[in-house]
Design a protein around this nucleic acid. Structure first.
Lengths: 230, 230
DNA sequence: CGCGAGCTTGACGTTGTTCAACTAGAGTGG
DNA sequence: CCACTCTAGTTGAACAACGTCAAGCTCGCG
């Protein structure tokens, strides 16, 4: 029993974009102030509205960052695939979490004490710059999502989601979907019924093939065209 | 003639959220590497897609940050009122501008060389932290816009825009609108016709009063309710 | 006085949501 | 081993929200 530490900080420091800039003594400080946790699929890792006391270093699994909306219809801003780092934007403002992060597949991660993290960042400029880079990437991703919501319709958004899942989440073309259809709808900002209908049409037209949970994108070029043009 | 320098860096350093943390020698470095420019209403300050070589310190005027969309229908992410600072999110990624910034009212601002800015930030942690705070505020603003696009309809968005203009841009209740109706539609993500129709309805119902370019919000509490509920 | 840009208004069509009924599959208990 | 239920997903029909198109208006300006 008890709270074990199975992960080695040094391993993360090799792969993580933020921690690769740390000196040994800084790694040691982080090691002292981290908590290792495992989350089962569906479990909430960080709840929107609660105090933002830790940053997260993802080691394994798949998680989603989502915006809570009225009536249980959330919106998924992004997925997280390790090695990866997350820190909420409330960090410097109101010290609250503005998103809800939850596990999609089994997640192993470390929660790192915010004050320790900030202290180290104050001393280590390289890490601070890496942090800013991640922040800015997040902004660009948000802007991208926003453009989708503004210009793309039904078909474009579903096509975009298919390509995104294949290329950025599952890294393979026939891929086994670990998220639900409801989550697909929350990715695209559509109703689950609309997603269902469009996937059906895409199948009819031979763009994709769905067998059980396995998706096969047959005509990526056409999907890309649909994604671009709306 | 020539390119004059009328502004005093020290003045900005008193008010600007980023530059208030600078030491005298750092202010001097910035002073050597800045360009003072005036933009007329409608002029583009930074064009999306061009290289991102400078950060902007706004001294006077009103500018808008917008996303370019197909068919000339842009989307306004935010307005900028001095004293204020802007740096594009491409800074650490692809060194390009991802937004178009243009003057709405006559703008006076300084363009500060990016390398100088980064050098100083590398040495001055306080400025780096102030920069991160601004970055995070931008994220929160984006997320807010996103939520509006996702859950609010017509009426809610226009009500929100009215309140925003009064409280965050013009700082007064009967306010004289310096932006066009088209820009109002680009703020809300609606067509200009829809905005027109809704403003008409709001007037009919006694929520607002419009005389020429002057807007008077008569029932702020009701507008707020509409903004919240859809 | 007449022109043109910006704005308004109305009619119409499209898009996508909602509601409701239905289906399939997984898990449960008799 | 078979009904039973529960959840996730599908399908269809009706409706509402908004954008589009087109015509008309207003006001500033030459």
């Amino acid at each position: 029993m008890g709270f074990e530490k199975n992960l080695i900080c040094f391993d993360c420091s090799m792969t993580s974009p933020v921690f690769c800039n740390l000196k040994p003594n800084e790694i040691a400080r982080i090691d002292k102030n981290r908590i290792e946790v495992t989350f089962n699929p569906g479990e909430i890792i960080m709840k929107s509205g609660t105090p933002n006391t830790h940053v997260i270093s993802f080691f394994e699994g798949l998680a989603k960052i989502s915006l809570e909306r009225r009536g249980g219809r959330n919106f998924i801003l992004d997925f997280i695939r390790p090695p990866s780092f997350f820190s909420g934007p409330g960090l410097f403002i109101d010290k609250k979490n503005h998103f809800t992060i939850s596990a999609v597949e089994l997640c192993k991660l470390c929660l790192i004490d915010m004050d320790t993290f900030l202290d180290i960042m104050r001393e280590n400029t390289k890490m601070a710059f890496a942090f800013m880079e991640i922040s800015n990437n997040f902004i660009l991703n948000l802007v991208n999502k926003m453009e989708s919501l503004l210009v793309k319709h039904n078909y474009g958004r579903v096509a975009e989601a298919m390509l995104y899942l294949s290329r950025k989440i599952y890294y393979s073309n026939p891929f086994k979907l670990s998220i639900s259809k409801k989550e697909l709808s929350e990715m695209t900002g559509l109703s689950k019924e609309s997603v269902s209908r469009i996937l059906h049409e895409f199948t009819d037209e031979g763009l994709i093939q769905i067998t059980g949970k396995t998706f096969h994108l047959l005509k990526e070029d056409l999907l890309e065209q649909i994604s671009r043009n709306g």
